[in-house]
């Protein structure tokens, strides 16, 4: 990789000749994100399968705090915005702006994780442990893995921020920030799905039979078909 000679010019990406015309690293990241869809798809499906199947409480309606989670969802969504601003700053070679927006993104990511730590702890105090019921097991597994993704993203952004602060010859390049941004946005869209299914729809399931209405609806449909 060659870099810009002048300090203020945007870092020049040297595009390697590839058969697809797509940068290898970018292609790799998209392939990873595509496969990560499968990973989260399975975990989300597991949660949906076990929805309304717990025979002891606490049930979602007993403990899930939708307003607080709406705020943390908002924070994560806005961190996506600050991330695109960071990418734009990196593309235009503005290191100072880049660092500022990266820090904003990191702070909001930490805020989201803080909400999750608070939530998990509140659940634990209420008596919802990992092994308590099917809801808790599938819930903690899904949101825990998402939280791990966010945490990894935060470390990644911190690394990029440090590199940008030291500013070794145009690093990080626009592409470096761009790829980290792709990962960050992906974590955001996964949360969009989780927030809708686990909180807005599943968060009000009360008692052992909640969520069964959906199953009965399906049964009604399949009954019509057969």
């Amino acid at each position: 990789m060659a870099h810009a000679e002048t300090a203020h010019a945007p870092p020049v990406e040297v595009e390697e000749a590839t058969t697809t015309g797509i940068n290898h690293r970018k292609l790799l990241m998209w392939v990873f994100l595509g496969s990560d869809c499968l990973f989260f798809g399975s975990l989300i499906a597991t949660y949906m399968v076990y929805r309304g199947q717990s025979i002891v409480g606490p049930y979602p309606a007993d403990i899930v705090d939708v307003p607080i989670t709406t705020i943390s969802t908002f924070v994560l969504l806005m961190s996506s915005f600050s991330m695109v601003m960071a990418v734009a700053a990196a593309r235009s070679g503005n290191q100072k702006r880049l660092i500022q927006w990266l820090l904003v993104t990191i702070v909001m990511g930490c805020g989201f994780i803080g909400f999750q730590v608070y939530e998990f702890n509140a659940f634990r105090v209420e008596g919802l442990r990992y092994e308590t019921n099917l809801f808790s097991s599938s819930f903690y597994t899904l949101t825990g893995f998402h939280g791990a993704h966010v945490t990894l993203g935060i470390f990644w952004l911190i690394c990029i921020t440090i590199i940008a602060a030291r500013n070794p010859a145009g690093r990080p390049s626009g592409l470096d920030v761009d790829i980290a941004g792709l990962y960050w946005h992906f974590v955001d869209i996964v949360w969009i799905v989780i927030f809708t299914l686990l909180y807005l729809i599943g968060g009000f399931d009360a008692g052992p039979d909640a969520g069964h209405a959906a199953v009965q609806g399906w049964n009604w449909v399949t009954g019509l078909v057969s």
């Binding site: 292609l27 994100l33 595509g34 869809c37 499968l38 399975s42 499906a45 597991t46 949906m48």
Partner: peptide, 16 residues
């Protein structure tokens, strides 16, 4: 590539 992963994930979820 992304839609392929997304659709596969969706199919897995629906199937489960």
């Amino acid at each position: 590539i992304f839609v392929a992963g997304l659709v596969l994930g969706l199919i897995v979820a629906i199937a489960l």
